[in-house]
Design a protein around this nucleic acid. Structure first.
Lengths: 338, 338
DNA sequence: TTTATTTACGAAATCGTTTTCGGTAGAACA
DNA sequence: TGTTCTACCGAAAACGATTTCGTAAATAAA
């Protein structure tokens, strides 16, 4: 079945393209009668409007972009779900870009967003990102941007986050209450706010309990590839028998800790207690079940999208200039019990 | 910093828009000298080409769409990764649509794809999809389509699948060898080829072992919402003590089985052995570790994208009309051992 | 020198919409 | 009767690129 464009449709109907266009957009300038005729013909002759012609003329693309570090992480999967749920409602299209934690890729993608391809951007920055020039440039071209989860602190923009500091604090408190004497915080970045805040909460909690360590000792950085991370964590678990409690700042680190312990025969929670920032749904059926600080990932995505859309409507998004905080919940399971 | 369009750039350079356009596209009609001047000015004056104007004229969008049932499933996350890896290489943009297992949504999205918004489509159909009219309509408009994982059997199109029948067969064989006497196959659809083929392999294996059951008894369908599924599986585990082996056709069903067993105090593998089609990375650290048939999810996505791009280049994709099969691997862990 | 050929560029049409700005008829009003 | 509104519709100009085709100058071939 061949496609028609608006010009052909106009010819068939013996009307002008202007009239057809207006009829299709349900303009008051057009009589109900002709509207009906146009709609019918549009269906009969298989008319599908060309979105790019429309975007060109109206300077609106009905498209948003989501930039995130990876998708094979439950948190981001759930966040995408939340974002999509809103985009679908609004009839918007969603472009997904993966930065793979590479600042270079992030920069390239953000650069491309300046072309007018998108009406708005949702972004969770990479663990490498230390400057936000690329993002500010986009901002200066009046494209609404909302940060979710991984913000860039120095930039003023709507942000949807979770209570990272508090959660970091509580996770350490839990381990201390369960009798741990030497704690370690596993991080993936020394600049990412989610990591630094969680770490700071952790540090404050151990200091408060008289278990203070030097920051370099208390925090273990797992940068590098996933394979390298595995190696690092395995070595840590193998060699540092003094550590009896760990807080994993992101999901995959916790999994690495578990795998290492299984490989090395280290018993969780007896030899080592573990708690992780994670939304992994298998937490309750892990061996042992994993205590988690679970972020409201879906809601974070949904809220960020919500704000983005009100911004794109030209409205103020109603919240103050402060980030929106959706709290995480700590669920204790066997990995921290005695 | 203001954006420039090609017309302004031409004025600045005292050249025609035609020349500027050709210079930017590195045409042989333009001297190296002016090319250099144009490129410089483009950078200096912050020129970013409007992709929609370009798409309109060239009838190419540099965009592909991926339609999948859900993203919060490790298989699909990994597949997206594979797809993105190729798209990024080719400088293409990726639109993601979630059908949430709803045929209606799938139809709407596919319909929209006819508008010229995309140059190609990768799709994994919903569990409800029983007809492919919408997809054939798209095909008839010469938009390349590649199915991955969840195909529609009756349609002729490139497909990238895994060895479903064989894997179903092997999973049942394993349980039989481990001494199971009464097996159950957990399915999510009576029409989805991945389910029916896996189920058929399963049925053939138990028939061969003299453990044949009627199909209605051997296969348990978990349709409905996730919450309903949990209820159904819980009831099954609670009431059918005769069943001592289960094959979960998709990841989330296995998780539900585990959760139910934990709740009900059913011991895996002693009371019930479980094997699942799954790519979940926590399989080795579950309680007990989960035997899986693991699909090469990343490669499936990557290969599908590869084929799509060769198709979009107008070339034959080199393979025969038969689907490309990337085999899964069975990894036995504790959930099926004695 | 004359005639082809190449090289380098520009004018204008084109892609398929949307929107502005008129314009014509008939109704309503004085 | 003349005037002012409405209600509908159309011509044409955008939107910002690409591409075809034409042409002038420079070079090569005769």
């Amino acid at each position: 079945m061949r496609k028609t464009n608006i010009k052909e449709l106009a010819q068939i109907l013996n009307l002008s393209v202007a009239t057809v266009s207006k009829a299709l957009r349900d303009s008051h300038e057009i009589s109900e009668q002709t509207k009906k005729k146009v709609l019918e013909a549009a269906k009969d002759f298989n008319y599908t409007p060309n979105p790019y012609a429309s975007s060109l003329r109206r300077k609106k693309s009905k498209t948003i972009a989501v930039i995130l570090p990876e998708v094979a992480d439950n948190f981001f999967s759930l966040a995408i779900n939340g974002i999509q749920s809103i985009a679908e409602l609004k009839g918007y299209h969603v472009l997904i870009y993966l930065s793979h934690e590479s600042f270079e890729i992030e920069k390239t993608v953000v650069e491309d967003c300046r072309s007018g391809r998108i009406d708005g951007l949702l972004i969770s920055i990479t663990s490498e990102t230390q400057s936000a020039g690329h993002i500010m440039k986009l901002q200066s071209e009046n494209i609404p941007i909302v940060f979710f989860d991984r913000e860039f602190e120095e930039i003023v923009a709507p942000k949807v986050l979770t209570n990272d500091y508090e959660s970091g604090y509580l996770s350490a408190r839990l381990l201390i209450e369960r009798g741990c004497k030497s704690l370690q915080f596993l991080s993936i970045s020394s600049s990412l706010p989610i990591c630094t805040k969680r770490a700071q909460g952790f540090l404050d909690a151990i200091a408060e309990a008289g278990m203070a360590k030097k920051e370099e000792e208390a925090i273990f950085y797992c940068t590098g590839t996933h394979a390298e991370t595995h190696e690092q964590i395995r070595n840590l678990v193998a060699n540092r028998k003094d550590i009896d409690g760990m807080v994993a700042s992101v999901e995959r680190l916790a999994i690495q800790v578990y795998l290492s312990c299984h490989e090395l025969g280290v018993n969780i929670p007896h030899d080592l207690k573990v708690i992780a920032f994670s939304t992994v749904e298998t937490a309750p059926i892990l061996n042992p079940s994993l205590s988690t600080i679970t972020q409201p990932a879906f809601e974070i995505g949904k809220t960020a999208a919500d704000i983005l859309f009100t911004l794109m409507d030209g409205k103020d998004y109603g919240y103050s200039k402060k980030p929106v905080i959706l709290p995480s919940v700590l669920i204790e399971r066997d990995s921290t019990k005695n």
